[in-house]
Design a binder for these strands. Structure first.
Lengths: 113, 113
DNA sequence: CTGGATCCTGATGGATACTG
DNA sequence: CAGTATCCATCAGGATCCAG
């Protein structure tokens, strides 16, 4: 079973198979609608360029919605679309797995001291 | 809730938040133990260098196991460890989501013709 | 012949400075 | 505030080379 264009996992990976995208989604799931600066603060170490880039891609792919308020100072809000919300089970599984194995990896680290 | 070092999702993403890693795991889940060349054929468009690199990282992180048979011609088998197997729910969710939305994106494509 | 290391080149990511 | 623009470091792909 080769992993070609019709592979469901490949399709999913093409949309959210990127470290920063997952973290952006995490932020939107946890905190709801977020402004650019909220995301910037909420995701440690992401550069503005990367944040902009990934937000644009998520928007093009119909996963998030970008609402611009035509005012000064500028205000832009990002929120999940229905498609974006449908990704929640995946994020939930990643969260559960992380909780479980963060414990383990912290123990490992402790044992190595 | 900032996304710092103790964020479960960030931990998960740090281990498998890479396109090729997910596809490698997909291959191992679907086909069981695989040789280097099996993975190379099963994952369309991955370069040998990238495959080697990602396999090494997955091995270091304890997600896959690498068994070398000291024979000619060389033979190396990759399989999932217990930790690797515990990632199955995540892959399953990605698969389900992909199945659901591959339909949609194919319809969209059809409508644009 | 398989698995993978190396080299070179083009693409991508990060840090900073600047703008509407 | 929400991005661009710029420059530089690192990474990815392709071809080739090598050891068992």
């Amino acid at each position: 079973m080769p992993c070609d264009k019709s592979c469901p996992i490949e399709h999913t990976v093409n949309l959210i198979g990127h470290k920063w995208k997952v973290l952006i989604l995490r932020n939107l799931f946890n905190n709801g609608t977020q402004r650019f600066s909220d995301l910037s603060k909420g995701i440690s170490k992401i550069s503005q360029k990367m944040l902009t880039q990934q937000l644009r891609q998520l928007e093009v792919d119909g996963i998030i919605y970008r609402k611009v308020y035509p005012e000064v100072p500028p205000k832009v809000e990002y929120s999940l679309t229905a498609l974006g919300n449908s990704l929640k089970p995946i994020l939930d599984e990643m969260n559960s797995w992380g909780i479980e194995h963060l414990k383990q990896s912290q123990l490992d680290q402790h044992n190595n001291e």
